[in-house]
Amino acid sequence: MHLVVICIGRLKQGPERELAERYRERFDDIGRKLGFRGLDVHEIAESRARDAHTRMAEEAASIAALFPEKHVFVALDERGKSLDSASFAQQLGRWRDEGIANTVFTIGGADGLSPELQRNANLRIAFGSATWPHQMVRVMLLEQIYRAATILAGHPYHRA
């Protein structure tokens, strides 16, 4: 299974980008041994439209254009389901074992993901009830993907 993270907004050079890249590289190292075919991160520029509805629609079109043909779609949404790390790992492992070709994670812009995208998600997840900066959400998602791989591998990185 191949993993894809699609984000609205770009990370500038600095500690957030370095940390995000560190977790992506760590996942690549362990993930291949577990049957994962890699992890790609796509950044999409924020829409410049004046109203939120148009911004979300433009961003949704850009996101959907990057969806691989066969995929499971996970939307990061503040109203989504809160999964602990072990449950997140089990879900990724289940999709991998079912032969899902691609799992796509999306992080919306400042206005969030369009309602249509949210409705089409196979799973909506949240990192708690707090509001997080998009840069931090990306780092947390990549860390959780790496942590999921370590859990699936029985690695001691994850200590409950």
Results as ranks from 00 to 15, higher is better:
Gly9Leu: 03
Ile63Met: 05
Asp84Gln: 10
Arg32Pro: 05
Arg26Asn: 06
Glu59Gln: 01
Asp51Val: 07
Leu3His: 03
Ala60Lys: 00
Val4Arg: 14
Ser47Trp: 00
Arg17Met: 10
Val72Asp: 08
Ile6Lys: 04
His42Phe: 14
Phe36Ala: 02
Glu16Tyr: 15
Ala86Asn: 09
Phe67Cys: 02
Lys12Gly: 12
Glu43Gln: 13
Lys70Phe: 10
Gln13Asp: 15
Ile30Pro: 06
Arg22His: 14
Arg32Asp: 08
Ala60Trp: 00
Gly35Gln: 02
Arg26Trp: 03
Glu25Lys: 14
Lys70Tyr: 09
Arg26Ser: 06
Arg26Pro: 02
His71Asn: 14
Asp51Phe: 03
Gly80Lys: 11
Cys7Trp: 03
Leu34Met: 05
Phe73Asp: 05
Asp77Gln: 12
Ser82Ile: 15
Lys33Cys: 09
Glu59His: 01
Ala86Arg: 15
Val4Glu: 13
Ile8Val: 15
Arg24His: 06
Leu76Asn: 15
Asp84His: 09
Lys33Glu: 15
Leu39Phe: 03
Glu78Thr: 15
Arg55Thr: 04
Lys33Met: 11
Thr54Pro: 01
Ser85Asp: 04
Arg48Pro: 05
Phe67Trp: 09
His53Glu: 12
Ala61Pro: 01
Leu19His: 09
Ile6Tyr: 09
Ile63Val: 12
Leu83Cys: 06
Ala45Leu: 10
Val74Asp: 09
Phe67Thr: 02
